[in-house]
Protein backbone atom coordinates (compact mmCIF):
# COMPACT_ATOMS: atom_id res chain seq x y z
CA UNK A 1 0.00 0.00 0.00
CA UNK A 2 1.54 3.29 -1.05
CA UNK A 3 1.40 6.33 1.17
CA UNK A 4 -1.74 8.28 0.37
CA UNK A 5 -0.25 11.74 0.18
CA UNK A 6 -3.38 13.28 -1.27
CA UNK A 7 -5.53 11.96 1.54
CA UNK A 8 -3.09 13.25 4.12
CA UNK A 9 -2.96 16.71 2.59
CA UNK A 10 -6.73 16.71 2.30
CA UNK A 11 -7.17 15.73 5.94
CA UNK A 12 -4.72 18.37 7.11
CA UNK A 13 -6.29 21.14 5.04
CA UNK A 14 -9.77 19.97 5.98
CA UNK A 15 -9.11 20.21 9.66
CA UNK A 16 -7.42 23.55 9.27
CA UNK A 17 -10.58 24.86 7.64
CA UNK A 18 -13.00 23.29 10.11
CA UNK A 19 -11.23 23.81 13.41
CA UNK A 20 -11.83 27.55 13.92
CA UNK A 21 -15.56 27.09 13.44
CA UNK A 22 -15.63 24.01 15.66
CA UNK A 23 -13.75 25.78 18.45
CA UNK A 24 -16.17 28.68 18.40
CA UNK A 25 -19.14 26.31 18.45
CA UNK A 26 -17.62 24.46 21.40
CA UNK A 27 -17.13 27.72 23.26
CA UNK A 28 -20.60 29.12 22.68
CA UNK A 29 -22.70 25.96 22.60
CA UNK A 30 -20.90 23.06 24.27
CA UNK A 31 -19.37 24.96 27.17
CA UNK A 32 -22.58 26.62 28.45
CA UNK A 33 -24.56 23.37 28.26
CA UNK A 34 -21.90 21.27 29.96
CA UNK A 35 -21.35 24.02 32.47
CA UNK A 36 -25.07 24.07 33.29
CA UNK A 37 -25.04 20.33 34.02
CA UNK A 38 -21.98 20.77 36.23
CA UNK A 39 -23.24 23.84 38.09
CA UNK A 40 -26.60 22.15 38.56
CA UNK A 41 -24.98 20.02 41.27
CA UNK A 42 -23.95 23.10 43.21
CA UNK A 43 -25.75 25.70 45.24
CA UNK A 44 -24.58 29.11 44.21
CA UNK A 45 -26.78 31.95 45.34
CA UNK A 46 -27.01 34.82 47.81
CA UNK A 47 -27.12 32.40 50.75
CA UNK A 48 -23.71 31.03 49.78
CA UNK A 49 -22.38 34.50 48.97
CA UNK A 50 -22.43 33.51 45.30
CA UNK A 51 -19.80 30.84 45.93
CA UNK A 52 -20.53 27.38 44.50
CA UNK A 53 -21.08 24.74 47.18
CA UNK A 54 -21.59 21.15 46.17
CA UNK A 55 -25.11 20.07 46.96
CA UNK A 56 -25.66 16.97 44.85
CA UNK A 57 -29.20 16.60 43.59
CA UNK A 58 -30.62 19.23 45.89
CA UNK A 59 -31.46 21.61 43.05
CA UNK A 60 -33.35 18.86 41.26
CA UNK A 61 -35.20 17.92 44.42
CA UNK A 62 -36.20 21.54 44.80
CA UNK A 63 -37.39 21.62 41.22
CA UNK A 64 -39.81 18.72 41.77
CA UNK A 65 -41.48 20.72 44.53
CA UNK A 66 -41.28 24.05 42.73
CA UNK A 67 -44.83 24.99 41.73
CA UNK A 68 -43.61 28.01 39.80
CA UNK A 69 -41.37 25.76 37.72
CA UNK A 70 -44.22 23.40 36.89
CA UNK A 71 -46.48 26.29 36.06
CA UNK A 72 -43.86 27.68 33.68
CA UNK A 73 -43.54 24.27 32.05
CA UNK A 74 -47.32 24.15 31.67
CA UNK A 75 -47.43 27.67 30.24
CA UNK A 76 -44.66 26.83 27.82
CA UNK A 77 -46.46 23.69 26.72
CA UNK A 78 -49.72 25.54 26.10
CA UNK A 79 -47.94 28.34 24.31
CA UNK A 80 -45.96 25.91 22.15
CA UNK A 81 -48.86 23.64 21.22
CA UNK A 82 -51.24 26.41 20.22
CA UNK A 83 -48.61 28.50 18.47
CA UNK A 84 -47.51 25.56 16.37
CA UNK A 85 -51.05 24.49 15.60
CA UNK A 86 -52.15 27.88 14.28
CA UNK A 87 -48.87 28.49 12.50
CA UNK A 88 -49.20 25.20 10.70
CA UNK A 89 -52.75 25.92 9.54
CA UNK A 90 -52.12 29.51 8.53
CA UNK A 91 -48.70 28.70 7.11
CA UNK A 92 -50.21 26.00 4.95
CA UNK A 93 -52.91 28.34 3.65
CA UNK A 94 -50.36 31.02 2.81
CA UNK A 95 -48.01 28.51 1.21
CA UNK A 96 -50.83 27.07 -0.91
CA UNK A 97 -51.79 30.56 -2.05
CA UNK A 98 -48.21 31.54 -2.84
CA UNK A 99 -47.73 28.33 -4.79
CA UNK A 100 -50.36 29.42 -7.33
CA UNK A 101 -49.57 31.61 -10.28
CA UNK A 102 -51.07 35.07 -10.05
CA UNK A 103 -50.08 38.60 -10.87
CA UNK A 104 -47.97 40.25 -8.22
CA UNK A 105 -46.92 36.97 -6.65
CA UNK A 106 -43.39 38.25 -6.03
CA UNK A 107 -44.69 41.23 -4.08
CA UNK A 108 -47.08 39.14 -2.02
CA UNK A 109 -44.24 36.76 -1.21
CA UNK A 110 -42.10 39.65 -0.05
CA UNK A 111 -44.90 40.90 2.15
CA UNK A 112 -45.50 37.42 3.53
CA UNK A 113 -41.95 36.94 4.77
CA UNK A 114 -41.75 40.37 6.31
CA UNK A 115 -42.96 39.39 9.81
CA UNK A 116 -40.31 36.69 10.05
CA UNK A 117 -37.49 39.15 9.35
CA UNK A 118 -38.43 41.77 11.92
CA UNK A 119 -36.90 41.86 15.42
CA UNK A 120 -39.10 39.96 17.85
CA UNK A 121 -38.52 42.45 20.65
CA UNK A 122 -39.77 45.32 18.50
CA UNK A 123 -42.67 43.26 17.23
CA UNK A 124 -43.57 42.58 20.84
CA UNK A 125 -43.71 46.32 21.41
CA UNK A 126 -45.99 46.67 18.42
CA UNK A 127 -48.36 44.02 19.69
CA UNK A 128 -48.29 45.43 23.20
CA UNK A 129 -49.54 48.64 21.65
CA UNK A 130 -52.15 46.89 19.53
CA UNK A 131 -53.46 45.03 22.60
CA UNK A 132 -53.35 48.14 24.76
CA UNK A 133 -56.40 48.16 27.03
CA UNK A 134 -57.13 51.86 26.70
CA UNK A 135 -56.06 52.95 23.23
CA UNK A 136 -55.42 49.62 21.54
CA UNK A 137 -56.63 49.24 17.99
CA UNK A 138 -57.69 45.64 18.52
CA UNK A 139 -60.25 46.65 21.12
CA UNK A 140 -61.46 49.41 18.84
CA UNK A 141 -61.96 47.03 15.93
CA UNK A 142 -63.79 44.44 18.02
CA UNK A 143 -66.02 47.06 19.61
CA UNK A 144 -66.85 48.58 16.24
CA UNK A 145 -67.69 45.15 14.86
CA UNK A 146 -69.77 44.64 18.01
CA UNK A 147 -67.99 41.42 18.81
CA UNK A 148 -67.33 42.74 22.30
CA UNK A 149 -69.27 45.36 24.19
CA UNK A 150 -66.57 46.77 26.45
CA UNK A 151 -62.82 46.96 25.85
CA UNK A 152 -60.90 43.96 27.12
CA UNK A 153 -57.70 44.28 29.14
CA UNK A 154 -55.86 41.85 26.88
CA UNK A 155 -52.51 41.83 28.59
CA UNK A 156 -53.91 42.34 32.09
CA UNK A 157 -56.15 39.29 32.18
CA UNK A 158 -54.35 35.97 32.77
CA UNK A 159 -56.23 34.03 30.09
CA UNK A 160 -56.36 36.78 27.49
CA UNK A 161 -52.67 37.50 28.06
CA UNK A 162 -51.81 33.96 27.00
CA UNK A 163 -54.06 34.31 23.96
CA UNK A 164 -52.38 37.60 23.11
CA UNK A 165 -48.82 36.34 23.25
CA UNK A 166 -49.80 33.30 21.20
CA UNK A 167 -51.40 35.58 18.61
CA UNK A 168 -48.28 37.73 18.42
CA UNK A 169 -46.06 34.68 18.07
CA UNK A 170 -48.27 33.21 15.37
CA UNK A 171 -48.07 36.49 13.49
CA UNK A 172 -44.31 36.59 13.80
CA UNK A 173 -43.46 33.04 12.79
CA UNK A 174 -46.17 31.87 10.42
CA UNK A 175 -44.11 33.19 7.52
CA UNK A 176 -41.22 30.93 8.45
CA UNK A 177 -43.51 27.89 8.32
CA UNK A 178 -45.01 29.13 5.05
CA UNK A 179 -41.56 29.51 3.44
CA UNK A 180 -40.55 25.96 4.30
CA UNK A 181 -43.88 24.48 3.22
CA UNK A 182 -43.80 26.45 -0.01
CA UNK A 183 -40.44 24.88 -0.84
CA UNK A 184 -42.07 21.50 -0.36
CA UNK A 185 -45.06 22.40 -2.50
CA UNK A 186 -42.85 23.64 -5.30
CA UNK A 187 -41.00 20.37 -5.49
CA UNK A 188 -44.22 18.49 -6.30
CA UNK A 189 -44.55 17.91 -10.01
CA UNK A 190 -47.66 19.35 -11.61
CA UNK A 191 -48.00 16.09 -13.56
CA UNK A 192 -49.06 14.32 -10.39
CA UNK A 193 -52.04 16.61 -9.96
CA UNK A 194 -52.99 16.33 -13.61
CA UNK A 195 -52.81 12.56 -13.59
CA UNK A 196 -54.82 12.49 -10.38
CA UNK A 197 -57.53 14.77 -11.69
CA UNK A 198 -57.78 12.73 -14.88
CA UNK A 199 -58.45 9.80 -12.59
CA UNK A 200 -61.41 11.82 -11.34
CA UNK A 201 -60.10 13.16 -8.04
CA UNK A 202 -61.53 16.33 -6.56
CA UNK A 203 -59.15 19.11 -5.46
CA UNK A 204 -59.75 18.17 -1.85
CA UNK A 205 -58.85 14.54 -2.57
CA UNK A 206 -55.72 15.69 -4.39
CA UNK A 207 -54.77 17.75 -1.39
CA UNK A 208 -55.28 14.84 0.98
CA UNK A 209 -53.71 12.17 -1.17
CA UNK A 210 -50.88 14.02 -2.92
CA UNK A 211 -50.05 17.33 -1.31
CA UNK A 212 -50.11 16.39 2.36
CA UNK A 213 -48.12 13.15 2.09
CA UNK A 214 -45.52 14.73 -0.16
CA UNK A 215 -44.88 17.75 2.04
CA UNK A 216 -45.00 15.73 5.24
CA UNK A 217 -41.21 15.91 5.65
CA UNK A 218 -41.26 19.69 5.30
CA UNK A 219 -44.08 19.89 7.82
CA UNK A 220 -42.09 17.86 10.32
CA UNK A 221 -38.95 19.92 9.76
CA UNK A 222 -40.81 23.21 10.08
CA UNK A 223 -42.55 22.04 13.23
CA UNK A 224 -39.27 20.79 14.66
CA UNK A 225 -37.62 24.17 14.21
CA UNK A 226 -40.68 25.95 15.50
CA UNK A 227 -40.95 23.66 18.50
CA UNK A 228 -37.42 24.46 19.56
CA UNK A 229 -37.94 28.19 19.11
CA UNK A 230 -41.32 28.31 20.82
CA UNK A 231 -40.13 26.15 23.69
CA UNK A 232 -37.32 28.60 24.35
CA UNK A 233 -39.33 31.76 23.63
CA UNK A 234 -37.96 34.72 25.57
CA UNK A 235 -37.90 38.14 23.91
CA UNK A 236 -41.57 38.21 22.87
CA UNK A 237 -42.84 37.39 26.34
CA UNK A 238 -40.29 39.48 28.21
CA UNK A 239 -41.25 42.58 26.26
CA UNK A 240 -45.01 41.99 25.93
CA UNK A 241 -45.94 40.81 29.42
CA UNK A 242 -42.74 40.14 31.33
CA UNK A 243 -44.33 36.79 32.21
CA UNK A 244 -47.35 38.42 33.84
CA UNK A 245 -49.96 39.02 34.87
CA UNK A 246 -49.22 37.01 38.00
CA UNK A 247 -47.07 34.50 36.14
CA UNK A 248 -49.86 33.66 33.68
CA UNK A 249 -47.48 33.88 30.71
CA UNK A 250 -44.27 32.98 32.49
CA UNK A 251 -42.40 30.55 30.25
CA UNK A 252 -39.48 28.35 31.29
CA UNK A 253 -37.06 30.80 29.73
CA UNK A 254 -38.50 33.74 31.62
CA UNK A 255 -38.28 31.77 34.84
CA UNK A 256 -34.66 30.79 34.14
CA UNK A 257 -33.78 34.38 33.35
CA UNK A 258 -35.41 35.66 36.53
CA UNK A 259 -33.78 32.96 38.63
CA UNK A 260 -30.35 33.93 37.38
CA UNK A 261 -30.62 37.67 36.86
CA UNK A 262 -33.08 38.72 39.53
CA UNK A 263 -32.66 36.16 42.32
CA UNK A 264 -28.99 35.54 41.46
CA UNK A 265 -29.57 31.83 42.04
CA UNK A 266 -27.01 30.47 39.63
CA UNK A 267 -27.01 26.86 40.81
CA UNK A 268 -30.75 26.46 40.53
CA UNK A 269 -30.77 28.37 37.24
CA UNK A 270 -28.19 25.95 35.88
CA UNK A 271 -30.31 22.98 36.94
CA UNK A 272 -33.30 24.54 35.18
CA UNK A 273 -31.21 24.96 32.02
CA UNK A 274 -30.10 21.34 32.22
CA UNK A 275 -33.65 20.02 32.54
CA UNK A 276 -34.96 22.27 29.76
CA UNK A 277 -32.14 21.04 27.56
CA UNK A 278 -33.04 17.41 28.24
CA UNK A 279 -36.72 17.95 27.45
CA UNK A 280 -35.79 19.67 24.21
CA UNK A 281 -33.37 16.94 23.14
CA UNK A 282 -35.91 14.25 23.93
CA UNK A 283 -38.59 15.83 21.75
CA UNK A 284 -36.13 16.56 18.97
CA UNK A 285 -34.92 12.95 19.02
CA UNK A 286 -38.49 11.68 18.78
CA UNK A 287 -39.25 14.05 15.91
CA UNK A 288 -36.01 13.03 14.20
CA UNK A 289 -37.07 9.39 14.37
CA UNK A 290 -40.46 10.31 12.95
CA UNK A 291 -38.79 12.18 10.11
CA UNK A 292 -36.56 9.21 9.29
CA UNK A 293 -39.59 6.98 9.11
CA UNK A 294 -41.43 9.46 6.88
CA UNK A 295 -38.49 9.65 4.53
CA UNK A 296 -38.16 5.88 4.50
CA UNK A 297 -41.85 5.64 3.60
CA UNK A 298 -41.41 8.13 0.79
CA UNK A 299 -38.86 5.89 -0.90
Amino acid sequence: MTQDYIRQREKRTGWMLVIPAVLLLLLVYAFPILRAFWLGFFTENLSTNLQPEFSGLENYGRMVQDGRFWQSIGNTAIFTVFSLLFELILGLIIALALDQAFRGRGLVRTIAILPWALPTALIALAWRWIFNAEYGVWNDILVRLQIIGDPVNWLGDPNWAMVSVIAADVWKTTSFVAILLLAGLQSISQDLYEAHSIDGATPWQSFRQITLPLIAPQIVIAMLFRFAQAFGIFDLIQVMTGGGPGGATEMVSIYIYATVMRYLDFGYGAALVAVTFLILILVVALAGLGLKRLQANAE
Binding site: R7, E10, K11, T13, G14, W15, L17, V18, V22, L25, V28, Y29, F31, P32, I33, L34, R35, A36, L39, L224, F225, A228, Q229, F231, G232, I233, F234, V252, S253, I256, Y257, V260, F266, G269, A270, V273, T276, F277, L280, I281, V284
Partner: peptide, 28 residues
Protein backbone atom coordinates in the same frame (compact mmCIF):
# COMPACT_ATOMS: atom_id res chain seq x y z
CA UNK B 1 -12.77 17.17 1.72
CA UNK B 2 -13.11 13.85 3.43
CA UNK B 3 -12.05 14.36 7.01
CA UNK B 4 -12.46 11.97 9.92
CA UNK B 5 -15.24 13.12 12.25
CA UNK B 6 -17.08 14.84 9.42
CA UNK B 7 -20.41 13.19 10.24
CA UNK B 8 -20.03 14.11 13.88
CA UNK B 9 -19.43 17.78 13.09
CA UNK B 10 -22.35 17.87 10.68
CA UNK B 11 -24.70 16.19 13.12
CA UNK B 12 -23.68 18.56 15.88
CA UNK B 13 -24.21 21.56 13.61
CA UNK B 14 -27.69 20.33 12.73
CA UNK B 15 -28.74 19.75 16.34
CA UNK B 16 -27.25 23.00 17.54
CA UNK B 17 -29.43 25.07 15.18
CA UNK B 18 -32.32 24.02 17.42
CA UNK B 19 -30.90 25.29 20.72
CA UNK B 20 -32.75 28.30 22.12
CA UNK B 21 -30.41 30.99 23.39
CA UNK B 22 -31.78 30.73 26.92
CA UNK B 23 -29.80 27.48 27.26
CA UNK B 24 -26.59 29.33 26.50
CA UNK B 25 -26.89 32.62 28.31
CA UNK B 26 -25.90 31.43 31.78
CA UNK B 27 -22.65 29.84 30.61
CA UNK B 28 -21.87 32.78 28.38
Amino acid sequence: LRIPGEQLVLGAVLVVTLFPYILLFLGL
